[in-house]
Simulated scan of single mutants.
Amino acid sequence: MLASVILLNMLIMGFYLWWQAYNSHAVTDRMAYTINDLITRQRGLVLDRSFLDGLETTAEFILNPEQNAAIRFTQVTLQPGAVPGDPPQIQVDWSYSPCGALALADAGPGFDANVLPLMAVGATMIVTDVQVPFVSTFDLVPSILFERRAVSLYRFETSFELQGTGTSTCID
């Protein structure tokens, strides 16, 4: 009888933590697309790093209080091949990660025409990469690093120039 009560309690605890992980995964997904969408709606020709820092703060507001997001914003353009007939190539226009949480993006694996969504030659997109850890307190549910990528065309502008200083939200 005691063994079945212990087993039942462990199963309930495992289900509760599994549900927390599932919820954390869903919130991370929504947060990545929300932050990406906020960038696509900007007007003007310039994005300021302090604005992107503010979006990182917004992302952490959306997440569960115990989670901390690492975000990288990257603008890419599909350039025509060097010679007619060559396949088009992805060009990374700029990349920024508040507080240097993620490495800056380079054209190549992860940022090539085979990985990113189909786009027209000359089109520019914003790529928002997000990493959010889920730390489990129960051995049956492992700790996980959720990684999401949201990619969108800008809605009102063709591209942005990145300027300003940034990293105003960093905690030592």
Rank of each mutant, 00 (worst) to 15 (best):
V141F: 14
A105T: 02
L140A: 12
G100T: 11
P109S: 14
I62K: 00
E161W: 11
L63E: 00
A120T: 14
A70C: 14
D112C: 08
D93H: 02
L17M: 13
I12D: 06
M125N: 01
D112M: 09
A103F: 06
A70Y: 14
A3R: 12
F15R: 13
T158N: 04
S143L: 10
Q79W: 04
F51G: 03
A82R: 15
E147S: 08
L140T: 12
I71W: 01
D139Q: 15
G166L: 14
Q75G: 02
W94K: 00
M119S: 15
L153V: 09
L102Y: 05
Q89S: 10
P84M: 02
D37I: 05
L38V: 04
V83N: 07
L153W: 05
F156E: 07
L104P: 12
P98V: 07
R148M: 02
I90R: 01
V127H: 01
L162W: 13
R30V: 00
V151A: 11
V130L: 08
I71N: 01
M125K: 02
L102H: 07
M119Y: 08
A113H: 12
G44T: 11
S136C: 14
T58V: 15
P88C: 12
Q75H: 01
Q20D: 06
C99G: 09
A3G: 12
E56K: 15
V135H: 15
V115T: 11
S4G: 09
D86V: 10
L2P: 11
Y33T: 15
F51V: 12
M125W: 03
Q91K: 09
E147D: 06
Q79N: 07
S97M: 10
R43V: 11
A123Y: 03
A59T: 02
T57D: 06
V135C: 11
T128N: 05
M31P: 00
L52D: 02
A21P: 04
E56L: 13
Q91R: 11
T137E: 05
V83P: 05
I6A: 14
N68D: 14
L118Y: 09
F160H: 03
P98R: 06
L11Q: 06
V27S: 01
M119Q: 12
L8M: 12
I35S: 00
Q91N: 07
G108P: 04
Q75F: 01
F73N: 06
R49Q: 11
R30S: 02
A26N: 10
E66L: 09
M10Y: 13
P88W: 09
V135K: 15
D86Q: 10
L116S: 09
A105R: 00
T57N: 10
A32E: 00
L2G: 13
S159P: 05
A69P: 05
R72P: 00
S152H: 07
A26V: 03
L52N: 03
L38D: 08
R30P: 00
V132T: 02
L47G: 03
R149D: 00
D48W: 10
T40S: 07
I71M: 01
